[in-house]
């Protein structure tokens, strides 16, 4: 019962913060609300017993991405910068469409009967590591390597793009 209450608490906070994240006029606050949502999600993972995943969520999302967004906001805006709002009418009818989609999805999910596939659970970090590096059937070595390369490429690209054109290149134009 305690866990259930905790779950609903987390869920309620999560919805609240996500709504705040998309409705606040201050970008810096939106970034912080996003951070909260991510932390709450890590809470879900802890509750489900996926400690490693929760750790990754905290480290990468909360520690990395959220901070990156905050820094970006600070780079391009004053800290007190407020974004302009749309008209109430536009909020209303876009909200209505989104609400329709949400209700539709929820209803469909409600009607769908999920089937559980029984099996012994083994989700320790060691298991995950072995699966990630397994080369045989069901192994994820190839996507793992592809993602490594992707990350490397993104690092390089991010540096090149954010750095902009060098003085040298500009002179050549």
């Amino acid at each position: 019962m305690g866990e259930r209450l905790l779950f609903y608490l987390l869920a309620g906070l999560m919805v609240l913060f996500s709504v705040l994240a998309v409705s606040t006029t201050r970008v810096i606050r939106a970034a912080v609300y996003l951070l909260f949502v991510m932390i709450l999600m890590a809470g879900f993972y802890f509750m489900m017993g996926y400690n490693f995943l929760a750790g990754v969520q905290l480290m990468v999302y909360s520690g990395g991405i959220a901070v990156l967004i905050v820094i970006a906001v600070l780079l391009v805006h004053h800290i007190e910068h407020r974004v302009e709002r749309l008209s109430a009418f536009e909020y209303l009818w876009k909200g209505a469409v989104v609400l329709a989609g949400m209700v539709l999805t929820l209803v469909s999910l409600r009607q769908f009967s999920f089937r559980r596939l029984e099996g012994a659970e083994h989700a320790t970090v060691a298991d995950v590591g072995e699966r990630l590096l397994a080369t045989g059937r069901g192994g994820y070595i190839l996507p793992f390597e592809v993602i490594s390369v992707l990350l490397l490429a993104v690092m390089v690209a991010a540096i090149v793009i954010a750095k902009g054109e060098s003085e040298n290149a500009r002179n050549h134009d």
Binding site: K94, V97, V98, A100, G101, L104, V107, S108, Q111
Partner: peptide
């Protein structure tokens, strides 16, 4: 994105309606 979203919802509705899932 909005049009995409609206279209997606409409399509899903259509599929549900046609397959009868909407009525359970």
């Amino acid at each position: 994105a909005f049009v995409f979203m609206g279209g997606l919802i409409a399509l899903v509705l259509l599929v549900l309606f046609v397959t009868g899932l909407l009525n359970g």
